[in-house]
Design a protein around this nucleic acid. Structure first.
Lengths: 199, 199
DNA sequence: CAACAGGTAAACAAATCAGTTTACTTTTTG
DNA sequence: CAAAAAGTAAACTGATTTGTTTACCTGTTG
């Protein structure tokens, strides 16, 4: 059985294995934690031999750093469509982000922010992982900053940081409590936005 | 050299070893995570033999549950004096809690909320640990609820939850970013309180 | 066809993990 | 004092960990 799809040939085989490993590791790290997830299981789930794995990722921590980068890129892609919409104001986009996050957090399968979890396991132990976590949170802050800087507010960066605090808080509580959020987050976000608006 | 203090004899030796173990484990779990901390190191730091450890805590997870309870009791004791003061209004106490938390989070040694970190490592794996984490967060919420219920606000429980969201968010960001909080948290808390006040 | 890069499968090494057991010592207490 | 309770130190088990190595296979390409 040869290659059947003669259209759209030349798929970059090179990076396929690497991505398979990252995706399997991402799922396992998210669901079971970093230390608790062994490389043998990752390689089995990825359908890849151990040797291949250690060619792409010389150490497990290298893989963790790559997974955290993947986590951010994945997150970015999920937000892309929303951020690109021109039928929504920046303020509406912010509210929409919290709505989407709220739905995500409400899922029983939610396991908290991977970067926060990684920090809990590797803080003070692996600078590369620490750095990857900070890069992620910095990016999250940048997303909000991009949205608030064109809002009629006095201190857009302060507002962005407050929004991030809100998002983190929701996530952490959802992760631990695993029950629907009893408050109206949308209203809380709107109050925050109103409090900063000069117009 | 016999026992010198003939006054106040009969110190309950029984629970001393147990507490030593919990305190050493608390420190190590906080600084290095749960999976990453081996029982051999805990027992060495506690100055206790392995056998004794396994008499008090048949499994490592039993110890983790005990540490999480200790974490809560410790937290409660740290808040006791503040909550008992009668020269402060409930509103002032809430603000004071955030000020203290802010100072704590600003410390470079801060490693995030132990219950959140535990959830990141044991979510879906150990019901007892999960439960201990939820008990901790429920207690945190109760502290705020006790303070808000006597405030002139419409929905004291909602306000309490929002305060908890704020506290969690600050903690999670501080844990990852490890840099001073760029916003005025006291003002953010006051805004939140003002937004709920009917008077 | 032949060379070769990239892959598999599995055995292996060395360390570490949680937890057990044994033999002995210290401390408390009736 | 003497029995009993609680402790120590250290060897040990068996499973698991990350990471290495060996021998073999496969698809592509000059």
């Amino acid at each position: 059985m040869r290659n059947m799809n003669n259209e759209n040939e030349a798929v970059p085989k090179k990076a396929i294995k690497r991505l398979q490993i990252i995706q399997a590791a991402f799922k396992l790290f998210t669901e079971n934690g970093f230390y608790a997830t062994g490389v043998d299981l990752i390689m089995r789930q990825a359908g890849v031999s151990k040797r291949t794995m250690y060619i792409y990722f010389p150490t497990k921590n290298d893989l963790i750093v790559a997974v955290l980068e993947f986590y951010r890129i994945n997150y970015e892609r999920g937000l892309k469509d929303l951020l690109a919409r021109n039928d929504l104001s920046n303020r509406e986009k912010i509210v929409a982000i919290f709505e989407e996050a709220g739905n995500w957090f409400a899922n029983k399968q939610f396991h908290g922010c991977l970067a926060v979890n990684a920090m809990g396991e590797f803080s003070g132990k692996d600078p590369d992982i620490e750095n990857a976590c900070r890069v992620f949170k910095t990016w999250e802050l940048d997303v909000f900053s991009e949205l608030t800087k064109e809002l009629p507010v006095m201190y857009p960066n302060d507002l962005a940081f407050k929004l991030l605090v809100l998002l983190e808080g929701m996530g952490a509580i959802a992760q631990v409590m695993k029950q629907p959020c009893p408050i109206d987050i949308k209203q809380m976000v709107n109050d925050l936005l109103d409090g900063h608006c000069v117009a």
